[in-house]
């Protein structure tokens, strides 16, 4: 290098004296910001707790979620041996809430995951390719978007019949259109950025551009959106079971439990409200977690 007259003074100093301070990678800095965010950390711990009591249900309760006894029907909260009371057939509520969470979480997270893969793919294609294919995808999605989500889920489930599989299928259908829309929008935005043009101008192929330039910039917002969809998904999937369209008795599931305990509201009012509290709590945690991710991923909020 020649003695460059254009050299900025600061760089000359830096060369000799400061060892280069390596800045962390993008995802690492996102992680650091997440750890410094108390609300997100707290709800993540709560969600981990919920995950623990559901997946590890046999570890936190000795009870059997299916067998009850007529002797112990509808006991109040604080009954010895049944600290959260019992349901209308005398089954321990704590046990059923632990086991019930398995179904509720599965029926909420699986449809969003399916929709994420299918909808994300369609959206990125529509957003990047555009033209006739993109238009076709988006117009078909418009039709499904024209149904209020709960109505569409109930309609599909109601016609296919109840059962966990149909409920998951119905919810996946419901969540594909919004995910396609979000991924289409962010992809179309990313495609217009100059760095994608610059990559094209240096002869990068379309697939390489999608892989290296578009996906990395698009995946974050799509994932954040999917997380916020889980909070909706929990509510709708439990709602389907609440209507008797999702999980079938005697399987424990929070929505289903809420419905059957509803009949006992005059006998054990507080016990009746418990499964719903779990739905509420889980949904809110996912919501807050998605908010936390969103602000942690926003590069420009840095410092």
């Amino acid at each position: 290098m020649s003695e460059a007259t254009y050299d900025l003074p600061s760089t000359r100093v830096a060369a000799a004296e400061q060892p280069a301070a390596p800045t962390p990678g993008y995802w690492k800095s996102v992680g650091q910001r997440l750890i410094r965010d108390p609300v997100t950390m707290f709800v993540t711990f709560v969600l981990l707790g919920i995950l623990f009591i559901t997946i590890g249900a046999p570890l936190v309760t000795n009870g059997d979620p299916f067998t009850g006894s007529v002797m112990t029907r509808l006991k109040p909260i604080g009954t010895p041996g049944h600290w959260l009371g019992t349901d209308e057939t005398g089954r321990d509520l704590w046990t059923r809430i632990c086991y019930g969470g398995r179904m509720s979480l599965l029926a909420a997270i699986l449809p969003v995951s399916i929709a994420l893969v299918v909808g994300g793919f369609l959206g990125v294609v529509a957003g990047f390719v555009g033209g006739k294919i993109g238009n076709l995808i988006m117009r078909v999605m418009d039709v499904f978007y024209a149904f209020p989500s709960i109505l569409l889920a109930i309609a599909i489930c109601g016609i296919l019949g109840n059962g966990l599989r149909n409920a998951i299928f119905a919810l996946a259908i419901v969540f594909i259109p919004p995910l396609v829309r979000v991924s289409e929008t962010v992809t179309a935005q990313a495609r217009q950025l100059d760095f994608v043009e610059a990559a094209r101008a240096s002869g990068t192929t379309t697939m390489q551009i999608i892989r290296h330039h578009v996906l990395a910039n698009v995946l974050g917002p799509i994932l954040v959106y999917a997380t916020s969809l889980i909070s909706v998904s929990i509510i709708i999937s439990a709602g389907l079971s609440f209507l008797g369209l999702g999980v079938t008795p005697p399987q424990p599931e929070w929505g289903l439990m809420l419905n059957s305990l509803r009949q006992a509201i005059y006998v054990q009012p507080y016990v009746a409200a418990l499964p719903g509290l779990m739905i509420f709590l889980t949904s809110m945690c996912f919501n807050l977690m998605s908010d936390g991710f969103r602000s942690a991923m926003d590069v420009r909020l840095n410092k």
């Binding site: 760089t11 830096a14 060892p19 280069a20 800045t23 590069v299 420009r300």
Partner: peptide, 18 residues
């Protein structure tokens, strides 16, 4: 980087927003 007047040791591993 050196030729455009940016010290590679300082700037090579930075991100655009920095």
């Amino acid at each position: 980087l050196g030729q455009v007047g940016l010290n590679p040791r300082t700037y090579a591993r930075r991100y655009p927003h920095e």
